[in-house]
Design a protein around this nucleic acid. Structure first.
Lengths: 351, 351
DNA sequence: ATGAAAGCGCTAACAA
DNA sequence: TTGTTAGCGCTTTCAT
């Protein structure tokens, strides 16, 4: 069975318009050296025939692939999806990414990449060879994986690294972590809290440290102690339970906790409840992420909203070179916002 | 600046192995007529050089594109993402789709397509021309959009239609809607309920009717009336509020509601609470979707879990022809499961 | 400002 | 069983 030709090619457009292939190509790519009259003629043929250039052919002839790769941690992402934890990180990436991509004729492809050292080079290398993307967006913890950044640099593929300020190839974007932690802490201080603890994320993620820094800065500015008030988790629920238990055990006069993820803060809420503490009357809680679920908990959590969509959108814009002359050494910091709900309130009167 | 060659091509592999391009091609595509010894030789060159075929080139030479398109309703999806309603439909599609795709060397690309009649043909036509996917997965309401199915059929692109049983091109998959509604209703009847209402989805979605059918069948089998017990919504929260109000207003002796989406059921929960009804003591609630948020509401909702990941995975398998001889006229029904939580309980004693 | 020719990396059809 | 040839649809030279 002969596979019928079923797409319009550049040749048909050229014939229809009575011009050469090149002229059509020039029109498609908005290149100079085409008279307006000619351009109109060709464009109308394109429209009438419904011609759309084949991505594959464009890529083949050495032009762009019009593909942007968004890379996420395989293990964590799969776990989130399988357990349906309600993390909408990927959705927000798609929101910011696909919209900006499609505005410019690009597509975004989500790829999951293992952090495991043996695989990463082969795995990502294969993906890049197959797809030949025009740009790659790296998210933590991949943003700081030198194996990955080196591989991409070798292949001359533009990179946007989200959540990293480390020197290295590509542009760097952060989501206001330090500032947000500072603002959250400050807000709690305004509410009269002075014993404010932090459940931080894992060291593997740079942003964990930035948030600690923001929290410490606010505390110190107000002459408040931070010793023993920081516990580390891995962003997951279980680790939040451990951290909250240990904090509440050590500090019976704790009146506020900032959790570096929704899951950990949710766990803290549960732990507080188990100990008979009422939120926010006895203890205030602020979370990081602002995933959908925190609006539905009892009480709904005050949370730092991660501007994922906006950040990814900006990353895409830079990758496809909308901003000519990329500020190579600059770091783009997209500010995060604090969304106040009912898990924060005035500090309880001192005993 | 000369763009440096930075990928290994089939030619280099051929030279390295001392064979022709064609032999390498045969090895790559696992074709017959290559002696094991030759195959090994070529394979080791491939491995050593880290060669991966270029998708674009493969596509160009008339073979597959190794791309599967997953199409969702643009407006609804964007709204869900922007409002962060917690719908993880796309995530579940990615979970089922990308895993099965990547196992077979394919990629899945998520596309948002407007339902609006004027656009759809141009829009989807352009995407298909550009990407030339090997298969397309359609979700409601696109699954039954004849403009779309016709377009894809004309271009000989294999289609999987989720949530449609209508005659037409491609394979059809459903997610056990009728059976699940039947099972949910039956469960409520077992719990002693007899006045069981339904908040259905919009007519635009076939599955809305299937769920009504399942509910009615269970009711009738037990000699229970259904008159005036079905209200229609649009799956959104607002419409759920309207529907629940109207139902509770008309039927003061209502003891159970089945909602055709999480958002509508959440709205019903709120309405019930406003009227001083305790869930599940005074009224039981069962939802459809089982998105992450329903585990965190008070009380957590009993819900019909939509097997999205599994369904999409099966769709992909068929599209890439893992199951030779596709059962063209068969409908694949992936059963949904009822997840019991705390929004269902025994019917209150009759007054 | 426009066109002709060459080639991107691969596979299909054919030849050996 | 293996190799050779001719494209796929497009963009790059380079001519005109």
């Amino acid at each position: 069975m002969a596979r019928r030709r079923n797409t319009v090619t550049i040749r048909e457009v050229a014939e229809d318009a009575g011009v050469s292939l090149q002229t059509v190509s020039r029109v498609i790519n908005d290149e100079p050296n085409v008279r307006p009259q000619m351009r109109d003629r060709v464009q109308s043929s394109i429209d009438r025939l419904g011609y759309v250039p084949s991505l594959a052919a464009q890529r083949m002839s050495g032009s762009r692939s019009y593909l942007i790769l968004a890379i996420n941690d395989r293990e964590r992402t799969l776990a989130d999806w399988r357990e349906r934890t309600g993390t909408d990180w990927v959705d927000q990436m798609l929101l910011g990414g696909t919209l900006t991509c499609s505005k410019n004729g690009y597509r975004m492809i989500v790829e999951l990449v293992d952090t495991h050292a043996d695989h990463v080079e082969r795995e990502l290398g294969a993906t890049v060879s197959a797809l030949q993307p025009d740009g790659v967006i790296l998210t933590p913890p991949h943003s700081e994986n030198t194996q990955i950044t080196r591989l991409l640099a070798e292949r001359n593929i533009p990179v946007a690294r989200i959540g990293s300020v480390e020197e290295g190839p590509g542009i760097r974007l952060t989501m206001g972590d330090e500032g947000a932690a500072y603002a959250a802490t400050k807000r709690l201080i305004e509410l009269g809290h002075s014993k404010i603890a932090m459940i931080a994320g894992p060291d593997q993620y740079s942003l964990s440290a930035w948030r600690i820094t923001g929290w410490k800065r606010a505390m110190e500015e107000h002459g408040l102690a931070t010793d023993g008030l920081c516990e580390k988790g891995d962003f997951g629920y279980e680790s939040g339970t451990q951290a909250a238990r240990s904090l509440l055990h050590r500090h019976t006069n704790l009146t506020a906790i900032i959790g570096s993820s929704d899951q950990m803060t949710l766990a803290a809420l549960e732990v507080a409840r188990d100990r008979g503490l009422h939120v926010p009357r006895d203890i205030s809680l602020i979370s990081f992420d602002n995933t959908p679920i925190v609006r539905f908990t009892q009480p709904p959590l005050t949370a730092v909203d991660q501007p994922i969509a906006e950040t990814v959108s900006i990353a895409v814009e830079h990758l496809i070179n909308l901003h000519k002359a990329p500020p190579v050494n600059e770091i783009i910091d997209v500010p995060a916002e604090l969304v106040e709900r009912s898990s924060t309130g005035p500090a309880p009167a001192a005993e």
